[in-house]
Nucleic acid binder design. Structure first.
Lengths: 222, 222
DNA sequence: GCGAAATTCAAACATTTGTTCCTGATGGCA
DNA sequence: TGCCATCAGGAACAAATGTTTGAATTTCGC
């Protein structure tokens, strides 16, 4: 784990380029594009330095996936853009998305009204605020996760999970997002409802995308 | 330029998948990955529909670039980065103690104040801070109220309740405190668990003491 | 200086992945 | 019915892209 300043000039240059590229293009650059930008003629050298950046904790990398890069830290002098880009304001997109997309359920635009949640700073602790987001839960389909209609959940964006974590997962075969406790059992994933009366569901590891880990649940009653 | 609802179900499914994928992976999916997720066996069909989405203004596409996709509009259910502010005025609320079966809610005495929880002032609105207190829930006996072990509940001290309120009540005959939704039915009181699968319990109005009304439920995971 | 480790380089290789072509199915419409 | 536009499927193709290999060069501690 190095700091940005401890990286080589070449590595910093690569990071700056990747950040700007993702920000402007919406997808990460290829190895050769990085090489061109950083003045590196050999793809292996780019590859070498990318691995160094992964090692330093700045980069996430998916092997054998083209453009399978993801920035993990904020880089000095760069705006880290997430979410929708290309239209409208780039940065303050404070809004609570809907979870439980499942099927049609047309959502009126009002449901996407921008809003934000005030949270005690102490709750975030050492979290990177740019990775924290909130979702408003609609409907009672999360009831087996002890979460009900109107609850707000605070999540940290991350594509992985540890056993026992409550995570927001996208079930590819069911085409819906749900909140469950995560347990890896070999290639099979067990999604355990928080409510002990409910049975777990099992899905193939390939059949789900982890969207984030739930850190807090907030419920306001009236 | 179509609206989200005017797209075909298949196209909506593709969009939802792309949104979730980018959010969790950090880079867009490949054509084949989209096909797998949307149940499309042919890459040309995916390609066809991607072009339709471009035409509809939902998608930006870079020809000949792998994963050269970018979402241009917000779609229902998508998760966006968002604003969680750790700033702003905070209010310290005394944490009185634990609520456990067979023990009454403690009375506010300085000596009993074990700790306090910080809460955004905005949550309290026009409440009188001196009437607000917090309890830490111990055990799973409140699970039928959608509250679990470790949760912190924020309450306003009051001896009455309106229908539908979630209240902390002391059941004289059972000699225990519990959290339930309150409904007055003549001289009989119906205490309705928040979980729809659970049956309500009925008690005589003389047999319970309302200790306070629940305003918020806070749950920190891990 | 010397040697080991780190870094760079060029080139070939293996996959991934976007693109294209052809065929078939379906649904309006005259 | 027959025509035509839309949409779907399968396969082959070509380009983009990540990976590996072997050697050259630089860096750094002793």
């Amino acid at each position: 784990m190095k700091t940005f300043e401890q990286l080589s000039e070449r590595q910093r240059k690569m990071l700056r380029f990747m950040s700007g590229y993702v920000n402007s293009q919406g997808y990460p650059p290829s190895i050769r594009e990085i090489g061109d930008a950083a003045g590196i003629s050999s793809t292996s050298v780019v590859n070498y330095n990318l691995n160094k950046l992964v090692q330093a904790g700045f980069l996430g990398r998916q092997q054998r996936v083209s453009r399978g890069l993801r920035l993990l830290k904020e880089i000095p002098g760069m705006i880290l853009a997430q979410g929708v880009s290309g239209e409208g304001p780039q940065f303050p997109i404070p809004l609570l998305g809907r979870i439980v997309a499942s099927e049609p359920v047309p959502v009126p635009e009002e449901a996407l009204v921008e809003d934000h949640v005030d949270v005690p700073a102490a709750w975030l602790q050492q979290e990177d605020p740019s990775d924290i987001f909130a979702l408003k839960v609609h409907g009672d389909s999360m009831i087996d996760a002890m979460i009900q209609d109107g609850d707000t959940v605070l999540l940290r964006r991350q594509p992985y999970a540890d056993d026992g974590d409550m995570v927001a997962v996208w079930l590819l075969d069911r085409d819906e997002t749900t909140l469950k406790h995560f347990y890896a059992e070999g290639k099979r994933i067990r999604l355990q409802p928080a409510h002990p009366m409910m049975d777990p569901i099992y899905v193939d590891a390939e059949q789900l995308l982890i969207q984030g880990k739930v850190l807090h649940v907030l419920r306001a009653l009236h």
